[in-house]
Amino acid sequence: MFFIPGVLISAVTFPGVIVHEAAHMLFCRLRGLAVLDVCFFRFGNPAGYVIHEETEDFNSAFLVSVGPLIVNSILCVAFCFPAYVPVRVFGRTDPISYVLLWLGISIGMHAFPSTHDAKNVWRLARQQARHFQPLVLLSFPLVIAIYAANILSVVWLDYLYGFALGMLVPELLFKLLV
């Protein structure tokens, strides 16, 4: 496994960074949280950020944190789908399909929330655990998955996630259509 600086990866996959931050912001808006500052992309670490007011409402914190997982994953499939069949099944090499695959996989790669987001959810989930709310119960394995994904990103798990989502889900959708 070879090492590529994160800044370079972010630069190559910048659409994913932009969508990631836009997803955080979208859920802030939907949940009525004030967004104090936002950077959709920059050359630096982090490559983007959304600074929003903190909330003690678990649902809001959960949705704002996992927003990128939802939005990036959906857009990854949406962009890879039109390119999947011509490229993977029929071996076509038209540039538009490759642009869509790059776009889809880049967006899918940045689907995982950061450990900071996971920490927020974890803190509130622990407080809410006694209420047995489904979202709270779901958040525990999700937080573990987010931590694992962030650790395993050094072995390209984020790329694998984007690739698998972009390639496997369209095939699965086709099988459902048959």
Binding site: F79, P82, V85, V89, F90, S97, V99, L100
Partner: peptide, 21 residues
Amino acid sequence: AVILLAALAFLYNQRFFFAHL
């Protein structure tokens, strides 16, 4: 713009989707 691009690509490549189906 990118959603439009994906939609156009889908329309342009639809014969491949239906052939695959």
